[in-house]
Write a protein that binds this DNA or RNA. Structure first.
Length: 342
RNA sequence: CCGAGGGUGGCGGAGCGGUCAAUCGCAGCAGACUGUAAAUCUGCCGGGCUUGUCCCUACGGGGGUUCGAAUCCCUCUCCUCGGA
């Protein structure tokens, strides 16, 4: 899923996203709630129409902001009080409110509000986050059922639960069991890549996935680097979202296919280190480089521009640089996912 | 020719007797980025190397005062603005 937190995949049009074969985009409850606000989006009949994206949208619940805006919030069982970093304005987000907002946005996949504990964190605090996440998940589900009771058949969005539990085996299992007991349309693994050493990812998946139904979509939230995605797919993950392709693209870091890229998703063995490499295009060594960025890529950038030109666009700060790099990186990521579907 | 103000690192611009190799911004170089407070952030940015409470050379040129000068004085030179 390309990330469209505020109702745009930064710099790109829906048409461009479709050309990249993006099927699903992620929006954010918290951000869209504040800007432009629900009044505006309701007037457009929902986020799809507002942003002119007619394919599915998954909305995150605001749970991650419970973590990332840590200086500006206070959590209680009732919900989370945030103050907006720019204006200081206070807002109170509850599980029910998160569901209401996501329904108003017209989301296709709604995420429950969860508590994502930071790293490092005591086990007691992780436990408390798990318990609160379960409690909130139950409230989300109840509220969701109540609110969508009258929806015509087939028009009901999906509701996903989110597993927490940090790096602890027993807590991951507890969280997964409690959520599956409530029952959701899909399950997300949350609380990963919040600062913990990278080796933990595989463990967390090993602790969590056995307790999630294989037939339901399983979504790893916020991840990741290509090698992490490949490993996670092998472990059983079906869905990802990550800011890396777009954010790093805007910052001039590009993903370039290497020799073994084409072997991904085939029975052939590949060397994980030969799948891709990153370059920072603003480096001086590319100043006169006439070569294309990635000879194996079909995006506009790779079909038309030299490294020297893209570097120049970044150096002068032109928005086209960010657009082209975002598009390229998304194509890389989406192509990687496409290969692994097989 | 007279009067006034000024010349600081690639640029802009602080500093106006010691704590100055010199605040800060830009440009430059490198790095980071994982459910987007992120077109952001961090580091380096006179030269040298043994990268350090290290050594050189430095605030237009020259001279002087002082224990000590980018900072005060003299002189030359250049720039800007007024007046002839």
């Amino acid at each position: 899923m390309p990330i469209a937190t505020r109702g745009v995949v930064k710099g790109l049009t829906p048409e461009e996203l479709k050309k990249l074969k993006a099927t699903l985009v992620l929006g954010n409850t918290y951000h869209l709630w504040l800007k432009p606000g629900l009044k505006v989006i309701k007037q457009f009949g929902g986020l799809h129409n507002f942003m002119q994206w007619n394919r599915p949208i998954l909305t995150d619940s605001g749970g991650f902001q419970v973590f990332s805006l840590s200086k500006f919030r206070k959590i209680t069982d009732r919900g989370v009080r945030f103050s907006e970093p720019e204006s200081g304005k206070k807002h109170f987000l509850t599980p029910e409110k998160s569901i209401d907002i996501q329904l108003a946005l017209g989301s296709d996949i709604i995420m429950v509000l969860d508590e994502c504990p930071p790293w490092p964190c005591s086990k007691a605090d992780v436990l408390s986050a798990v318990e609160r996440t379960t409690h909130w998940a139950k409230r989300c589900k109840d509220h969701f059922l109540k609110k969508t009771a009258g929806y015509p058949k087939g028009s009901k969005p999906l509701l996903f639960g989110i597993v927490q539990g940090g790096v602890h085996k027993d807590l991951r299992e507890k969280s997964a069991r409690e959520l599956t007991n409530i029952g959701f349309d899909g399950y997300a693994v949350g609380g990963v890549a919040v600062g913990e050493p990278r080796e933990y990812l595989k463990k967390v998946l090993k602790y969590t996935l056995p307790f999630l139904p294989e037939k339901k979509p399983r979504y790893l939230m916020g991840l990741g680097r290509p090698e992490e995605i490949i490993d996670s797919v092998k472990s059983g993950i079906d869905m990802f979202d990550c800011v890396i392709p777009t954010r790093e693209g805007r910052h001039g870091r590009l993903f370039i296919r290497q020799k073994d890229f084409q072997k991904v998703g085939t029975p052939k063995k590949f060397n994980p280190k030969l799948i891709y490499k990153n370059i920072n295009i603003s480096r001086e060594i590319y100043a006169k480089d006439k070569k294309t960025i990635d000879a194996n890529c079909n995006c506009y950038l790779c079909q038309n521009c030299s490294k020297a030109y893209l570097r120049h666009l970044f150096k002068i700060g032109d928005i086209l640089a960010m657009r082209l790099a975002s598009e390229h990186n998304l194509r890389f990521y989406l192509e990687l996912m496409e290969r692994m579907k097989k």
